[in-house]
């Protein structure tokens, strides 16, 4: 049984549609990335999961139960880090952590001390004097100090410096080793690529891609740059080849193009006939995947000029 199972979720605020038939699932032991640009509906989805918002349509199951009706019972089994952490201004960071972990049951003093050290957080400061990054650390420590089945993290690294991001990555990997499940919402692709097994990409309230990272890469193109001695003029016209450029210098021809991963075998064998002297094939990064879904692909200079 999936810990999170969302099917066809609709959610509107007045006339504005925030979620439009969203599907999302997290299996036990899975670390799922939940990727989308600002305003795509990631936080709305999480608030529905936490029983704070009521869905308009669709099925939402958290640990197999209804997140609205069973909020208290279900929350015993999860920990949550909001994207924009606000704390009680007159409590210190340490007090806020203790309060939050006590609400969830048995606090673990040793674990708290260890996490405070790893995140280099001073717990004696009043929350109102913390920077955004430090408030985020308070919520992270409070969540990781709890032994939960499921961790729901909503853009948890916003405001953290790269060193702290590394600590965060390490903490999530530990959770994974211990068989815990994580839903990690983010717009930072490298973070998701490093940590997650599976990814759901959401745009305008709808899941546009979902699967394991290798699966998603199959949907995309690789970048090929090859230097050949033969006549490469036919290469741009091959099936599956896009955005090709040819450069000739000192008699050698450098051909660069994107190729559909499904056509890569045929294209490479055609290249081999052209006396290849150097070749690189770059697998698609999540970045490119993301850009294909969210914006126009990175325009080449020629196209850019034409548009202008």
């Amino acid at each position: 049984m999936n810990l999170i199972d969302i099917r066809g979720l609709d959610k509107s605020f007045g006339s504005a549609k925030a979620l439009d038939g969203l599907d999302l699932a997290v299996a036990p032991g899975e670390v799922r990335g939940f990727l989308g640009p600002n305003g795509a509906g990631k936080s709305t989805t999480i608030r529905v999961l936490l029983g704070l918002l009521r869905p308009n349509a669709g099925q939402v199951r958290l640990f197999g139960g209804d997140p609205w009706a069973g909020a208290v019972r279900l929350h015993r089994r999860l920990a949550y880090v909001p994207g924009d952490v606000t704390l009680w201004p007159n409590l210190t960071g340490g007090e806020a952590i203790d309060y939050l972990t006590r609400l969830r049951g048995a606090p673990d003093k040793k674990r708290k001390t260890e996490l405070l050290e790893r995140f280099e957080l001073d717990p004696t400061k009043k929350a109102r004097t913390y920077s955004k990054g430090n408030r985020q650390k308070v919520a992270l420590v409070a969540a990781f100090a709890v032994d939960a089945e499921l961790y729901i993290l909503d853009e948890p690294t916003s405001g953290l410096d790269p060193l702290m991001e590394a600590v965060f990555t390490e903490c999530v990997r530990e959770l994974k080793r211990h068989g815990r499940s994580v839903l990690l919402s983010s717009h930072i692709l490298s973070e998701v690529e490093k940590i997650c097994d599976t990814v759901t990409i959401i745009r305008a309230g709808r899941a546009v891609e979902s699967g394991t990272l290798p699966e998603l890469r199959h949907l995309t193109r690789s970048r090929v740059v090859a230097t050949v001695r033969g006549d490469a003029s036919a290469v741009p016209a091959l099936a599956g080849v896009h955005d090709a450029t040819l450069n000739t210098s000192d008699g050698a021809v450098t051909v660069a193009f994107d190729v559909d991963d499904s056509a890569i075998g045929a294209v490479v064998s055609r290249l081999a006939a052209l006396e290849v002297t150097a070749m690189t094939v770059t697998p698609p990064s999540l970045e490119e995947l993301f850009l294909r879904h969210y914006g126009d692909p990175v325009a080449s200079p020629a196209e850019g000029a034409a548009v202008r």
Binding site: L91, T92, E95, Y99, D122, T124
Partner: peptide
């Protein structure tokens, strides 16, 4: 100037009643 406070909450700060009182 703000002074540093407690690193750990007192044993009393447990549950919503205690927090409302502290607030």
């Amino acid at each position: 100037a703000p002074r540093p406070g407690r690193a750990d909450a007192s044993g009393m700060l447990r549950g919503p009643f205690a927090l409302a009182w502290v607030q």
